[in-house]
């Protein structure tokens, strides 16, 4: 009988992508461009989860190397759309371009594609945390005359901020933990990570649900 961890990490957490994908599909016509980018992001996450499951018997970490770059580019695009400053938009898009190069350099020269990409993933997480905080600084309730909870992008931003903040230390020390910690503890940390991912998907689903024409 499969353990709770294998069900949670192998089925529940990956399947959670279906929640935002379904809600996004249902509300697709009402989604603004920025939310459509987030919807593309959850589609990419869903496809990546499927591929990771298919190749779960072998080392599937090369998928994560590619996913990290695509994820960062899509989320950068989202922030370039929701942030009001033109300079910031330009900086975000330039950083996204540089990150693609960094991803390739890391995979080719710095880290093996068969180990966790502890160089690129924390950098991506840090930059996304900064973007998220910039969004919070720039957002004003007076612009929309709506309560915080009624602004769709707030929910998606909250999901991104919570997930990447909480998982930052895990991304940075993943290889070290893998080497030092007992297997049960590694799984516990991954369970925790899975919970944050699910929380982010739920918050993104709420952001889709809140979209109105």
């Amino acid at each position: 009988m499969p353990s709770f961890t294998s069900i949670y990490l192998g089925i529940i957490a990956p399947a959670a992508t279906l929640i935002p994908i379904t809600v996004g599909l249902w509300k697709f016509k009402e989604l603004p461009k920025a939310m459509k980018v987030i919807w593309c992001y959850v589609i990419v996450a869903g496809v990546t989860n499927c591929l990771a499951s298919i190749f779960s018997n072998s080392n599937n970490l090369p998928i994560l190397h590619v996913y990290t770059v695509v994820e960062f580019v899509l989320l950068s695009w989202f922030y370039a759309l929701v942030l009001p400053s033109k300079t910031l938009k330009r900086v975000i898009l330039i950083l996204a371009g540089l990150f693609i190069i960094f991803g390739f350099v890391n995979a080719l020269y710095l880290q093996s594609i068969y180990v966790f990409n502890s160089n690129t993933r924390p950098v991506a997480a840090l930059l996304l945390i900064v973007y998220s905080l910039l969004y919070l600084i720039a957002s004003s309730p007076l612009e929309h005359q709506l309560r915080w909870s009624e602004i769709p992008a707030n929910w998606a931003n909250a999901g991104i901020l919570i997930y990447f903040s909480a998982a930052l230390s895990q991304f940075a020390f993943s290889n070290l933990v893998e080497a030092k910690a007992p297997h049960e503890v590694v799984l516990l940390i991954w369970n925790l990570h899975g919970t944050f991912v699910i929380l982010m998907y739920i918050l993104i689903s709420i952001s889709f649900y809140k979209c109105k024409k």
Binding site: I162, A166, S169, Q170, F173, V177, K180, L192, H193
Partner: peptide
Amino acid sequence: IYVLVTLVMGGTFLLAVSFLLIHA
């Protein structure tokens, strides 16, 4: 290190949530 990582994960999670609640 794993204890520290777990603690930092929990701590930053709480920090992010608190920050968002205060902001909202």
